[in-house]
Amino acid sequence: MAVMPHRPIRVLVAKPGLDGHDRGARIVARALRDAGMEVIYTGLRQTPEQIANAARDEDVDAIGVSILSGAHNTLVPRICALLREHGMDEVLVVVGGIIPLEDVPLLKKAGVTEIFQPGSSTQDIINFIRNHVHRAEPVA
């Protein structure tokens, strides 16, 4: 159920693991910003702990995790678990990158709402985030 936000949607674009390929992360970050969202980009090589802490400190509504290294099955569930530990179950988690289809169920079960494969349009990502961000307080 989408609710009109009372402030711009805040999104953390996160690069976990050792992978330095940031073309996608930067493009998505810029597209979200151009779409009116407030975007925080973590920079490269962040641990799941750093990402979850940044999400809490920045009070974000959504996290876009970009990962192309193949380490998603280890790192992404850990980010989701840490968010739950911080009581941030409502934060939307989406993932983009090189993700084999057989890994999708595991990631969704871990708490990822959607996986965006190569070729996804930034408009689809923007729409998805707008439609799936949960808000405690709707606009008055």
Binding site: L18, S69, A71, L75
Partner: peptide, 22 residues
Amino acid sequence: DLPTLMGYDSDHPLAEGEVGKC
């Protein structure tokens, strides 16, 4: 793999999940 590219051994904590992957 990425740990090797970043100068970490396979048993380094930051190598977790990345060993032999790419």
